[in-house]
Nucleic acid binder design. Structure first.
Lengths: 170, 170
DNA sequence: TTGGATTAGGTAGCAAGTTACCTATTGTGA
DNA sequence: TCACAATAGGTAACTTGCTACCTAATCCAA
């Protein structure tokens, strides 16, 4: 049990909570971060939301020609949700959804040339945003945090798989 | 630091995640983790969702008598959203929403005695879940990751405030 | 003490997420 | 080759999240 400083400005933390376990603290921190990240991130771009930007980034990482489900898996959401999100993204003209002629089940996510202009438009502001977000965090800190999060994510995937196997057995 | 370029149709994409800048990697990891955490977490409890559990935990941390907005701020969501979530939580009987007689604007979040039985019911499975999630992560790792996430969260709050100030000036 | 600022919350509309269950296509082994 | 499993996605109903904008209660300073 260690000392905990809960990250809130306008909420007084009762002293009996100093003993929260680090694991739960990390947990709450990740949840609150994800929640607030959406709010803040939606202010970075005019045309698209923060989640749409992350789907766009993911699709670009997975080029060439990822399917809807591949992007969904990369982002960590269901294919149903990703499809809806990608349809909205397609409406902005940044991507194009195309049936794969080689496998009629798949829908491919293709980036359009509009992405280049989009990227140029936000190059400065997005890198400024990243600089602000990672201010005072060194490369060493980052690398250390990355190791822990990698392990955490791997463990989560393991749990996820054991759950879906259980359900498959019913 | 490597440059991240959002690709157009004719730009080659790094196929390996290790080529991505650490900051973007951490970013994507946090997002994917939060997404998958909801899916996995919803399997931990029968009666309530993962988000509802986190709201319940937050309300218990903020006792005595936090308001809806205080819980919302702690969790990192809007008060409108938190109110809806707490209404569903109230329907399960674990909390009670009450007008504050001393300040008629506020709605207080009170835990009911049912929480105790709830905690007992899930004591084993939830601690087993935590053990699985943090497997092979040492206390030192945890502490290191926590320092980074604390700084990251603090930076995010700073950006959040500068945004709301900008909007206030319009 | 009154009038403006602040704070708490309500309403509405939409984006993003889930599970459950369905169809269609593709892959595979007897 | 043909039945069946696996894969990709569609539909529906629901929870969780947001912003914009509203009212009501409280606070505070002239």
């Amino acid at each position: 049990m260690k000392q905990v400083n809960l990250p809130t400005d306008n909420i007084r933390i009762p002293s009996d909570l100093r003993d929260i376990e680090d694991r739960y603290y990390l947990f709450g921190m990740l949840t609150a971060f994800a929640n607030r990240m959406q709010t803040v991130g939606d202010n970075v771009f005019e045309e698209i939301t923060w989640k749409q930007w992350f789907a766009l980034l993911s699709a670009s990482i997975l080029q060439p020609n990822p399917s809807v489900s591949q992007v969904a898996d990369f982002v960590g959401t269901s294919h149903q949700n990703m499809k809806q999100l990608l349809l909205r993204l397609q409406a902005t003209g940044l991507i194009r959804l195309e049936k794969d002629k080689a496998d009629l089940r798949r829908t491919l996510v293709k980036l359009t040339p509009a992405v280049e202009a989009f990227e140029q438009k936000y190059q400065q502001s997005s890198s400024h945003f990243m600089d602000s977000l990672f201010e005072e965090i060194t490369d060493e800190d980052l690398a250390a945090a990355r190791l822990v999060l990698d392990q955490l994510y791997q463990n989560l995937r393991t749990i996820e798989k054991s759950i879906s196997q259980q359900e498959g057995n019913i």
